[in-house]
Amino acid sequence: MDMYEQPFYLTAVSHGREFERVLKDRKTFKVHSVFTHAVNLVAGSGFLTILPLGRGCGKDVATVAVSERFSFFALDVSPGDEAGMPASCSLWLGEKTVIDFSGSKGWRSPLEAVNCLHTIGDENMAVLESALASKHNDSVFSRGFKFNVNSEPAACGGVIEDIRRTLLENDREGLEKALAGVIGFGPGLTPSGDDLVLGISLARSVFGTPWRSKGSIWEACVRRNLHKTSDLSAFFINRALEGCAHETVERALVYVLTGEPGEAKDAVGRLLSVGATSGCDIGLGIYLALNWQRRYAWCSKGW
């Protein structure tokens, strides 16, 4: 063992398909941002994320084996450091940290298993709804929001009502106006409003593909407004429009669509505990999209 150089070693356990760009094509990325439990890499408009094992994978994610209490700040990696693969299987972050991919397995999206249109079961929707209701103060959008699957949610008011109404009326300008106050709204690299849009977009994508509604006003309008938010957040929303998100989000969506209520509860619980408000905002987005699909079959109408 060469110990005299002593880079910081991390072992990758799984990686999404987009990591092939580094693993196979040897594309060089740069470190974009470092958080306690995440390192984001960037090349052009593409992002890759490194997360600890147990925090889920994704198409643009690799998970590494570290303990729960481990902080990526301990790595001596800073934004702007190069991330490249001079030797196969070893991704260097800066000069002192190396991630070993030799044992890492490719990750498959749980959404790939969802290949036919599903009816959305009452029981699972109720699971999602009650989970959201119990944390309704965590998202600015759900404050004062009355969750009731069976009632007409006309009473919800505010931005959400604007979105619902403009979509129903196929009101391109109205939607644009509504979204202008949502995308980029809130602090952080992934603002609250973006998380909401991400949730809606991901859920729409499941139904949107078979109904060929991907070019509808929602998708077009969201894309037009992405310049208002951070590159990283815009990237995540773009991915959601394409039907990809982080594993925790995908799992929550998949289990609500196809799982047993118990499984759905677990998956939703995990989603809602992500970040400070991110999980709740995304969960709310998924809930709204599914609810509107049940109520109005909006995807089949191409709004």
């Binding site: 063992m1 060469d2 070693y9 072992t11 990758a12 094992l53 570290v66 044992g103």
Partner: peptide, 16 residues
């Protein structure tokens, strides 16, 4: 352990 840390230094190498 050729060119890599020993699992006592990096138990994570066993995880995959």
């Amino acid at each position: 352990t050729r060119g890599k840390p020993h699992p006592m230094l990096d138990p994570g190498m066993r995880v995959p």
